[in-house]
Every structure is written in structure tokens, then in C-alpha cells.
Computed example of a mutant assay.
Amino acid sequence: MYLQHQNIAIIGAGVSGLALAGALKLQGVSSRVYEASDQLWSLGGGLIIPPNSVRVLEQLGLDTVLKVRGVELHDMRIYDVSGRLLYARSQGEVAQRHGHPLLGLAREDLHRVLAEHLPEGTVQTGHRLTGLDNEFHEAVAHFQNGQTVHADLLVAADGRDSQVRTLLYPETRLVPTGDVAYRGVTAQRPGGELDQAFSEFWGPGRRFTCFRMSDGLTSWHAPVRQGAGTPLLDKAGLLHAMRDFPPAVLGLIEATDADQITALPLQDISPLPEWWNRRTVLIGDAAHATSPNLGQGAAQALEDAAALAQHLAAAPDRYSALEGYQQQREGTANAATATARAFGELGRARGVARFARNLALSLNPELARRRIEAFYGDPVG
């Protein structure tokens, strides 16, 4: 395609939208990113950066943020709620196999570096999408502020609750997982063997994850099984719900200011038959929203952005580019969504299922390793 002559509009300034703008910039192509909020912002908290994320950031020339701001994690550990170790994996071994270990990073740091490396004026804030005309010859985006944007290609990078996806495919529905994810950030370090690890604790109907995301901050994440319509828990309620977890878990929650604890009902999406239609294409969570049980949400979004830019640059026409992009990415991204859903169910198992899970992991830890590392990419060397 003659990308230099294409008018490309990206809806959403999250990880996928900003990464795509950066990937297009490397192809010598300018684009505009339209963000609904009045300012660039991030949900906060931490991100796990797996090897497949690192490779895309290297391609974009942005991996310095990992060296400067990231925390290299030495181990991945999964415990039963009693504190019994169920699974351990040295990240040195992961680095030997996949080129990089897991890293912890503040979401805000990734968001900032993706935005700062774009030309001034690329991101336009205060543009909330209200309508879309997706024609054969152009896509037209209508915004709440009264502005209208005409594009040769419109990219929906507007996340899990994508307005573009709703307008294109109104029959599509997000599927609740049944969990509410409570998230927090604290200056308290996990301490002990947890201090340099990505750690998970699995309890009946509840889980807890923690890792250091910078030298001075720890990110934690606590999915709790809650029925639809159940009131969200405050800090005291969360501590009560997690009362049978080890002291290290309760200590991190107690050390977190109440106003730094957020709650998000988790949802994912069943595979979409089409990621593109006419002049509009979906990327990231707009195409394959996933639950955060594998740490692959941002990674899959980054891979989408890199793949779409490459296909747009190499394909002879728009149809071939968008078809090639979907064919390359949908199998892996949909598998990541399904695996994350299954992994979450495994982690919160109760009763006999919990006993069988613990026994299986003790006998064959490869069962967990294969699932966790399935999306890290081919072994190096």
C-alpha cells in the first residue's frame, strides 16, 4: 500500500493505539490518535512485561524504559492460600529460553513512553466518539465535540468497552467472568522470597497477585468471586474476604491507602468472526478483550499494533493488509483470551477441584509452565 498517502485515524490512546501510531511512524507514516478523555491518562497500577512485549518494544526502539524504570523479576511463584508452594519458575531459565525474563513496570511509564515518542500533535484529546459512517470509500468518525474526521482507514483501539466495536457489531457482548478485580499500589515491599518475584496465591473463589513495579512501589491484584449485583467491597471488606491468606498478602492490602484501591468487574469477549469491515479495523482489547490472568493483555495489544503496521506497509492493497493482519493475529490472541479465562478458573477452584489441581501441579509443574509461557514466542537460539 502507498501508506504515505493514506489518512489513518486511530480511536483510543491506550497501549494499542499509541503503539500503532509509533509503529506507523517507523514506516514513515503519520497518523492521528483521537482520545475521549480531556487528557492522556493511565489506569495506574503495574503491568507484567513478558518476553513477547519486550520484543515489540525493542522493534519500536522504546525498550530503554524497561532498563530505566522496569524491575527484573527473578522468579515466578504460585502458592496455595495456605502458603504451600505449588509452582516455581526461575526467570533466568525463562530468559535463556525466550530471550528475556518477566519484568514489572508501572502502566503509567509504558503509557508515557509510547506517547512521548510520537510527533507533537499526533494525539488529540477530548474526542469522544458518538457515531461512525463506515463506507466502502472512507470512514467518517463523529465526535461529541462536534468535530468530524474523514479517514482512509479507521483503527478501533478503544479498549474493552470499545464504542467502535459496539457501532460495527452491536450484537457483540462482553462476558462477565464472575470476578471483581481489586487493585492497589503501595510503597511497602512484599519482603522475603516475594520481594524479587511475581507471586500468586490461589484460594477458593479468590486469588492474589503481587510484584514490584518500580524501586519504590508494589502493585497487587485481588480477583474475588462475586455474584452480579453484589456491592463492591471497601478496604475493610476486602481484608475480611482475604482473611485466610498469608500475612504478607494482608500486609500489602493494609499498607495501601483506601483511595488507592480500585475495583473492576472482569469481563472478556468470545472470538469475533471479523476484526475488520470496509474501512475500519479493530486492535487490542477492542478485538479480543481478555481477563488479566496471564499478564498478556498489553502484550497482545503490542503485537497487534506491530503486525497491523507491517501488513499495511507490505501488502499491495487494503483488503490484503487487513485480511493478513487478522489471519496472523486472531489465533494467538483468541487463544490467550481462552487460556486466561481457564487459568482464572483454575486459580479460584474449590473443594475437590482445588485438591486435584494442587496434586496435579505437584506431580507435573509442566502443566502450568506450558500455559503460562505459551505466548512468550519461539525459543531463542
Rank of each mutant, 00 (worst) to 15 (best):
A228D: 12
I261F: 01
Q226I: 02
A255L: 09
D259S: 11
G227M: 09
P223H: 02
A258C: 14
L233D: 13
G237S: 10
L232N: 04
L264H: 12
L239E: 07
D244K: 06
A222K: 02
H221Q: 11
M242T: 11
I253F: 05
P265K: 13
S214P: 13
G227I: 05
A241I: 10
D215Y: 02
G229P: 03
P223G: 05
A263Y: 04
G216K: 03
T256W: 00
A248R: 11
D259A: 13
H240W: 09
V224F: 01
P246K: 14
F245N: 00
T230P: 02
R225Q: 15
A258R: 08
I253S: 02
G216N: 11
D215A: 15
Q267L: 15
L239K: 04
P223I: 09
D268Q: 08
A258D: 10
G229H: 05
R243Y: 01
Q267V: 13
L217S: 05
D259Y: 04
P246L: 12
Q260T: 03
F211D: 00
D259L: 04
S214K: 01
Q267K: 09
P231W: 07
M213W: 00
S214A: 12
T230R: 14
D234S: 09
L233R: 04
L238P: 02
S219P: 04
F245T: 02
L252H: 07
L239D: 08
A248I: 14
T230I: 05
I261H: 00
A241E: 15
I261W: 03
A258G: 14
Q267A: 15
G251M: 14
L217E: 10
S214D: 11
P223T: 07
L266C: 03
A263W: 01
R212N: 04
A241C: 10
E254G: 06
P223Y: 02
D257N: 12
A222P: 01
A263M: 04
P223L: 14
G216E: 09
G229E: 08
L217D: 07
A228R: 12
V249P: 00
F211M: 08
A258P: 15
L239Y: 10
A248Y: 13
D257Q: 11
M242Y: 06
Q226V: 09
G216V: 06
T230D: 09
H221A: 05
A236F: 04
A263S: 15
M242A: 13
P223N: 06
F245M: 02
A241L: 14
P247R: 04
H221S: 11
A258E: 13
R212W: 00
Q226E: 13
P231A: 09
S219N: 15
P247G: 10
D215F: 05
L232M: 06
L217M: 15
P246M: 13
F211Q: 00
A263E: 01
L232V: 05
T256Y: 03
L266T: 07
L252I: 14
L264Q: 14
A248G: 06
A255R: 13
A222M: 05
G216A: 11
S214Y: 10
Q260L: 15
G229R: 08
G229Q: 08
D257F: 01
A263Q: 04
D257V: 02
V224C: 07
Q260E: 13
R243P: 00
I261P: 04
I261K: 00
P231N: 12
G251C: 08
P246D: 09
A228G: 06
L239R: 13
